[in-house]
Structures are given as structure tokens and as C-alpha cells.
Amino acid sequence: MIKRIGLSWSAQVLEPLAALGRFGIFLAQLSGHLMRPWRQFRNTLGQLHFIGTRSITVIAVAGGFVGMVVALQFYDTLVRFGAVGLLGAAVGLSLVRELAPVLTALIVIGRVGSAMCAEIAIMRNDNQIDALECMAIDPYGYLVAPRFIATIIAVPLLTAIFNVVGIAGGWFVGVVLFDIGEGAYFASMADSLVWRDVLMDVVKSLSFALIIVWICTAKGYLLHLASHRTFGAEGVSRTTTDAVVASSITVLFADYVISALML
């Protein structure tokens, strides 16, 4: 019994460390391919279309509604203090600094991260990755690198779209519905938003992109080494769930760290 407890304890401590090590090796193996993006140019364009172009609608719709809700909530608060003129600043700051990068990242995890993880995990499960190896095609270069490059390009652009549409949503609620002057809305936003806020937005979106694509591709690629030791449909499903949960939590954690460092 004591032996079993000892073994279980050591497994619980060592397994996450081993997993962390495997993620590190995964990134190291990949790094050489990230320096030569032109090698899989066609693949990267395809991934850019899947991750970027096909996410625009959902990002725009989400951005619009989030901007509208933020404006609604701030209007309700600001009107009590007679400061509705600051609505543009409130909407702009909350979107650019916080909501746009975080919500874009969470939407990308749901729409793209889960798909990337499941697709690669199925390829691992069905020997398709072994087949690539046997054809002398490096799976890191062929499968993973294009997804990395495309995600790192697409997420900041999607975040920018979220910002623009969100600000437009806030404008609709503030200016069209509550009749705040258009000049006041945009002037207060321009006065309060500084380059540092935009830089925070860019740093966050780049960091979140890296977190999402690293966790989701590595989880799928390393399915055969997963601690749950389940394969087939159940293994793919568990791995995909793990990837979505782990990347969402890591994005929120990273959001706090970056905010703390940059504010």
C-alpha cells in the first residue's frame, strides 16, 4: 500500500514535469522551421485562410456585441456621476487594453485551437504523422510550423478587427441610442488612449497567439505520450478538451502577468 502511494505521488509530481519537458523539446524541434517559413508557403497561406479569414465573421460579431454591452454598462454607471462624456474613453480603454485581446484569444481557442489539436491528434492516432516521417517529410515543418506562423500573424489582426468593431458597437449605443455627441465619444477616446495601451494590446495578442498554438499543436502532436493513456476517439476527445482548458487558463494567467508588468 505504502509503495503504491509512493508510486502514485511520484507519478503525480513527475508526470507534469515530464510533460513540460516534452513541450520544451517540441518547441526546440520546431524553432528551426519557424526561421524558414517560405519552405511551406502554400501550407501557411492555407492555414492563414483557416485561422484568419474564416474567423473574421465570428470575431466581428463578438466584437460588435461586446462593444455594445461595454458601452451600455459604462453609460449606466457614468450617467450617475454626470460623466457620460467619458464613455468613449471607457469603451476604448477597456477594449484595447483588455477585452479585445482576451476575448479574441478565447474565441480563437474555441474555433481554431480545438480544431488544430483534434486534427493533429487524429493524424497521430491514424499513423498519418508516422507516414509523413517515412516519406522523409518533417512533420514539424509540414504540419506544425505553418500553423504557428499563421496563428501568430492572424491573432493580432483579428484582435485589431475586434477593437474596431467593438468601438463601432460602443459608438452605436452611445451616439445613436443615447445621443452622446459623436465628437465627445471619439475625442475622449483619443485623449485617453496612448501608444502604451496599443502596445499592450499588441504584446498581449502576440503572447496569446503563441500560447494557443503551442499548447494546442503540442497536445495533439504528443497524443501518444499523453498521461491519460487513452487513444482512439476517446483519446482525441480528452486531448482536445485538455488543450482548450489549458490554453484558456494559460491565456488568462498570462493576461494578468502582462497587465501587471505593463501598467
Partner: peptide
């Protein structure tokens, strides 16, 4: 290498 179930890339 010809795999047991083909191992063709599904996509």
C-alpha cells in the same frame, strides 16, 4: 512504406 490502413492524409 505502405501502412496497414493506408495512413493517407485525411484532408
Amino acid at each position: 512504406v505502405a501502412f496497414q490502413h493506408g495512413a493517407l492524409i485525411n484532408s
